[in-house]
């Protein structure tokens, strides 16, 4: 192939992958991600969970019954898995499958909103800390240390105790507790990106602090945050489950995986499906987020050439 056609071909390829400024980079990353089977397994599982959750209202109640409807007629409660109730029923006769699906809604919502709250606080503080250094850096990082010094779950419980146990307060608490890690990761990422010569070059070009921060440093520093954020969603789901298990989180009768486990603990041997399915849901979903985060770490590494 002549150089000209090769150039044309690769230009075409770039246009195929994406049109605008940054997308080719993401296109590359996605291609690398696709080759990582575990990450794809995680992505597929997350997609399935999301689709099931979003579409749940349409098909779950008619097929398996409403997750909140209590049926105490004889024989309705604690049924073993069957065709009508694939995951069995709990002691109030509610369909476990339907509760697990609706529980995903709580878990995903908490995961995403809590991590978003952490991201907003963590990114701003981390950026200030890493870019300006000095007093701001010391202030932010020492506050982060204070947060780290508390046992995580105890701090969450204490916060909930102050705010009152509710669905909304769970993600506020988890979100507030998550910022120090994000800030630290972002700060260190910015510290290393800041040393690059292209940052000096941007300054020598007459760019202002804000422009350097947002256009030259941020895009190069977010990769670890995307990875960490993805993994944090898994962590937030676990924390929600733990808080709900302890009765400090989502309140009954809202279906939450942690709450379901909590309710089932006395019936673990009589009706094992009550613990197995929510447990399985937590395990696989958290694992899926972690695997995907891990895959993204490799995929977003610009230096990894294919």
């Amino acid at each position: 192939m002549s150089p000209a056609t090769r150039r044309a071909a690769s230009a075409l390829e770039i246009d195929e992958v994406a049109g605008s400024t940054t997308r080719t980079l993401w296109g590359d990353a996605f291609r690398r991600l696709r080759r990582n089977k575990l990450a794809i397994a995680g992505l597929v599982w997350i997609t399935i969970v999301v689709v099931l959750t979003i579409s749940a209202d349409i098909w779950v109640p008619p097929l398996f019954g409403d997750p909140l409807t209590v049926r105490t007629a004889p024989g309705e409660s604690l049924q073993a898995p069957s065709f009508t109730h694939p995951f069995g029923t709990d002691k109030l006769g509610r369909d476990v499958f339907s509760r697990v699906v609706y529980g995903a809604r709580v878990s995903l919502t908490v995961g995403i909103i809590a991590v978003s709250i952490s991201l907003v606080i963590g990114l701003i503080l981390g950026a200030l800390s890493g870019y300006y250094g000095g007093f701001i850096d010391a202030l932010v990082m020492r506050s982060a240390d204070v947060f780290f010094a508390f046992p995580y779950i105890l701090f969450a419980i204490a916060l909930i105790a102050v705010l009152g146990p509710s669905y909304r307060n769970v993600f506020i608490a988890i979100g507030i507790l998550g910022w120090p890690s994000i800030a630290r990761v972002f700060r260190s990422s910015i510290l290393s990106v800041k040393e690059n010569e292209y940052v000096d070059a941007a300054r020598a070009m007459g760019a202002s602090d804000l422009r350097i921060m947002f256009r030259h440093i941020m895009p190069n520093a977010v990769a670890p945050i995307i990875v960490y954020g993805t993994m944090s969603i898994g962590g937030a789901i676990i924390t929600e489950a733990a808080l709900s298990f302890l009765g400090m989180g989502v309140q009954p009768p809202t279906p939450s995986w942690g709450l379901m486990l909590s309710d089932a603990k006395s019936l673990m041997f009589r009706a094992p499906w009550l613990t197995i399915w929510p447990g399985f849901a937590i395990l696989t979903t958290v694992l899926a987020f972690v695997l995907m985060g891990d895959g993204m770490r490799d995929a977003l590494d610009v230096k990894m050439k294919d």
């Binding site: 400024t21 010569e197 941007a202 070009m205």
Partner: peptide, 16 residues
């Protein structure tokens, strides 16, 4: 205007 020593690192990798 200024040109830096190492052309490998003085261009921002995320921009065309």
């Amino acid at each position: 205007a200024m040109i830096f020593q190492d052309p490998m690192t003085s261009l921002n990798p995320v921009f065309r």
